[in-house]
């Protein structure tokens, strides 16, 4: 079964030992960790869908939730972490070769099958690109299944852009456009200026046969969705992946629900129509 490990008869809270094989500094406070399960057989059997997430353990500190930011079509498992709290601060102290824990994958992931034959508009802000990167690379690796791909990615400043090495690769892919924007004008910056919703209004992407996939800070999502709706995207064709405090990842610990849906188990990917039904407030 793709994207879900059968966990019966084993302790569902037990993380698997995982080695850090590489660390990339994305921005001053964001690092990407490349990971490999120590148990090779387990690693080979480990599959996931774009948009699924894992619980990452720094032993002695605790767990934190991260989406897997690279595509299952690529060889490694990658997680990107912004230095924020107890666990992520400890993560930023880790070195290549260190052992951490991983359990998952959890959640529903993006509906990669339903997206087939559609134009895809990716809208992201800051580290919100992480889950979209997984889907973008998945779509590029299955390029024939999807129509035009438009990527609108923003950050506060050019220094806060993540996965910078990949923009050129994406641009070169057939039928793919990348628009970068930063909040304020900067010297030597040749791309767009202005917050993501404003950039969208300038780009005017088509809504016909398109699905918008949105991820970013709450404030960005709050202002982006109305812009998309105005452009003609119906709530069903606006997809977002939510973040809320999670602990178990298994739909048991009770904190990450919106209505009767647990983000960890029934999400984190929802379309906007569903969110409205669940009284989710942007």
């Amino acid at each position: 079964m793709t994207g879900q490990m059968n966990t019966s008869n084993s302790n569902i809270y037990l993380p698997r030992e995982t080695e850090i094989t590489a660390i990339r500094q994305e921005t001053s406070d964001i690092k990407t960790f490349v990971l490999k399960f120590k148990d090779a057989a387990y690693g080979d059997a480990f599959t996931y869908r774009p948009g699924q997430f894992v619980e990452f353990s720094v032993f002695g500190e605790g767990e934190a939730t991260f989406c897997i930011s690279n595509s299952p079509t690529r060889k490694t498992i990658e997680c990107s972490a912004k230095k924020m709290g107890m666990v992520t601060q400890a993560m930023h102290e880790l070195n290549v070769g260190d052992t951490v824990g991983l359990r998952g994958p959890y959640g529903n992931g993006f509906p990669v099958e339903d997206l087939k034959g559609k134009h895809l508009l990716f809208v992201s802000g800051g580290i919100g690109l992480a889950p979209l990167r997984s889907l973008i690379n998945y779509c590029l690796d299955n390029r024939d299944d999807y129509l035009d791909i438009t990527i609108v990615n923003g950050a506060r400043t050019s220094k806060d852009l993540v996965y910078r090495d990949e923009y050129k690769v994406w641009e070169k892919a057939p039928g793919t456009k990348v628009h970068l924007t930063v909040d304020c004008r900067e010297e030597d910056w040749v791309c767009m200026v202005g917050v993501v919703p404003k950039a969208l209004e300038e780009i005017k992407p088509t809504c016909n046969g398109s699905v918008a996939i949105v991820c970013g800070p709450p404030i960005m999502i709050r202002f982006t969705i109305p812009v998309l709706e105005k452009m003609g995207f119906c709530p069903e064709s606006i997809i977002t992946t939510l973040e809320m405090k999670m602990k178990c990842g298994l739909g048991k610990c009770g904190r990450c629900n919106i209505g009767n849906h647990y983000i960890c188990k029934d999400g984190p990917v929802f379309n906007y129509a569903k969110l409205k039904e669940l009284h989710y407030e942007l």
């Binding site: 993380p15 030992e17 353990s57 032993f59 002695g60 260190d98 052992t99 824990g101």
Partner: peptide
Amino acid sequence: CNKEEGTASP
């Protein structure tokens, strides 16, 4: 979650 000399194992 044992943490010994830089290595750790659950």
